[in-house]
Amino acid sequence: MSEGTMQRAAHRDQRDRRPVPGKRRGRVLVGAAVLPVLLLAAACSSDSGSGDKADATQSRTASASASPGASASPTVQPARYAKLPEACKVLSDKTLDDLVPKADDSGKEGKSSDLSRRASCSWDSLENHGVDGSQFRWLNVSLLRFTSEQTRGTGEEQAHEFFLKQVQDAQSTDGAKNTATQQVSATGDEATAVRYDLKKKEGTFKQQTVVARVANVVVTVDYNGAGLAGDKTPDADELVKQAEKAAAEAVASVAKANGDTLTSDPSDSGSSSDTASPSKDAQDGTDKTDGSASPSPSDSASSSDN
């Protein structure tokens, strides 16, 4: 092969190896079409990331602003009264002479594990009239103080619930006859008297129960009387007036024990007056109460045997 022939063959070979213009243009177009898709995906990814970061930042801000309120526990109003008076000293000697003549004025103090929360005292008397029989009287005063608690509410709310329960219990006494209920004015924040007859082997007992609430303290006065061995049955209207007088005096004693100033003496008028100023708020704990300290009417009636 001549030199000229070899040069022409090499030239054709180089020409055959050059890229075809049509095919290159196709690859360029494909690359150009892919590029916008990649840019769009990158933009979407960028927007999504910034949105997630914004949501996370907003969530952290909301949590931070809510955390103080979430960590702070709601508080309840402190109870008004922090202590109770001595139960055997809530009534004056004059009142005791009217309600339980011939009784020991010192009374019989009820058992209690904490006298600042729960206290009671009772008196009884038997007035002998010779062949005409005798007059029996029994009086019990109980006091129950409630403290404000996070789970149970304020002392006043708990005292109100217990007040209602005491009234209901008196109204549903087993064996009670001629039951009557009446509101009592000028005695604490609320007061109710329940009266009924209770037949016992010794005679008919006239029972009066006066339940009164003053702030976070509930006062319950149980008072009954009977004519024994042929003596006449006492007047129930008179007995309930005396029981209401005792309740008003006991309520006033609760106020005085906690430093309240009274405008008048309820032992003279038979009703309690409004307090001029409240006592210092009690520091409340987690005391628990489990019911009334006053005995049942059947217990009081049975005391006539003694």
Rank of each mutant, 00 (worst) to 15 (best):
D16I: 12
P21G: 06
S271Y: 07
G4V: 06
A255L: 11
E109M: 08
K83G: 05
G291C: 04
N178P: 09
V30R: 13
L164S: 09
E156W: 09
D287S: 11
K206A: 11
T95W: 05
Q58L: 15
F163Y: 14
A293R: 04
D93M: 07
E238K: 02
W138S: 13
D47F: 15
L38A: 10
V254I: 04
A255M: 13
S264V: 00
K280P: 08
S304F: 14
Q150R: 13
P68N: 00
D265A: 12
S264F: 01
L239S: 05
L40M: 13
N178R: 10
Y196N: 02
G49V: 01
V28W: 04
V100I: 07
M1R: 09
A293L: 12
G285Q: 10
G153E: 06
G155V: 07
S269C: 08
P19G: 02
S273T: 07
T192V: 13
A252L: 04
D93V: 12
L39I: 13
V34L: 12
T61W: 04
T181P: 00
N140Q: 12
N306K: 15
G259I: 09
Q150Y: 15
L143K: 02
D260F: 00
S122M: 11
L91I: 03
W123P: 03
L35N: 02
A215V: 01
D305Q: 15
G133V: 05
S73D: 13
A247S: 09
S120F: 06
K206N: 07
K199L: 08
A293G: 14
V141R: 05
V167P: 02
A276C: 10
R24S: 08
V218T: 01
A243M: 07
N306E: 10
D114K: 02
G133Q: 06
E109G: 03
K201Q: 10
T187H: 13
D284F: 07
V28L: 15
V141D: 03
A215I: 00
T286G: 11
V76L: 14
S112V: 02
A41F: 14
S300T: 04
G188L: 06
L99C: 06
R152H: 13
G22W: 02
R12N: 04
T75D: 14
E156F: 11
V37I: 10
T286E: 15
D222F: 10
L164C: 02
A41T: 09
T75S: 15
G49T: 03
H129R: 06
F163I: 01
K200V: 00
P74N: 13
G110I: 01
N178I: 01
G225N: 03
S134D: 07
E157K: 02
A64W: 10
A62N: 06
A103F: 06
P101N: 05
A193G: 11
D174H: 07
P85M: 00
S303E: 12
T220E: 07
N128S: 14
S48T: 13
